[in-house]
């Protein structure tokens, strides 16, 4: 069994507290990072509402709904993982992690299909055959690509961490029962989910 307590800590409670504080510092920086993108989106939406509305009609609502359901489900399986992890249930923890991994991968696969469709329809800012001739439409798609792309990158990083955690929990490579590892991974994953909760209405619903 790996040692749970690490230097400089002499108390597992304080170590857990420091682990959680560390991820919250990171999440705070992520909130500001995505906040800047949301702010840019909002300012240009205020200035160019017609273009945003016309551009939004081109996004695929069905795939957006499917991805929302997948991500909300993955958030629930991640929470389940944290809860059963606290109870020390190894098999259920690994099952929860694998379910989260599968749902997250499905999200990225659906996003890939959507990107393929978007590229096929020339929904790329600056493309000579960009289909929406209303000022602001290309700006909408600039934010669409930037925001969903960066969200997808965060998803991919999260999936990598979860895949490693599956291995680590299954082989007892880390002291997952005693440390805050699962909770830290869960906090990251849930923040990625929260970002999508706001992206979905802004890119697929509001003003459609």
């Amino acid at each position: 069994m790996p040692e749970a307590l690490h230097e400089p800590f002499h108390d597992i409670g304080k170590q857990r507290s420091a682990e959680e504080a560390g991820i919250w510092i990171f999440l705070a920086s992520e909130v500001i990072f995505f906040g800047g993108l949301f702010l840019g989106y909002a300012v240009y939406r205020l200035r160019l509402p017609e273009g945003y509305g016309a551009a939004m009609a081109e996004t695929n609502l069905t795939l957006g709904i499917v991805n929302t359901a997948l991500l909300l489900a993955s958030s629930a399986t991640m929470a389940f993982t944290v809860w059963v992890g606290r109870e020390g249930l190894q098999r259920a923890t690994v099952t929860g992690l694998i379910a989260t991994l599968a749902l997250g991968t499905a999200f990225l696969a659906v996003k890939g299909v959507e990107y393929y469709e978007d590229i096929r329809h020339h929904l790329i800012p600056g493309h000579p055959d960009f289909p929406v001739d209303v000022p602001g439409a290309e700006m909408f798609f600039s934010f669409y690509w930037a925001m969903t792309g960066l969200h997808g990158l965060h998803m991919a990083i999260g999936l990598g961490i979860i895949a490693w955690t599956v291995h680590a929990v299954r082989s007892d490579r880390i002291a997952w029962r005693e440390t805050a590892h699962l909770h830290v991974v869960g906090l990251y994953w849930n923040l990625v989910d929260v970002v999508w909760i706001f992206l979905f209405p802004l890119l697929y619903l509001v003003g459609r």
Partner: peptide, 19 residues
Amino acid sequence: VAIAFMEVRKMDAVSAIFA
């Protein structure tokens, strides 16, 4: 999500300050 999954009501003071 913040309350049910991220358990923000149970977070300690230091984490709450950062959030």
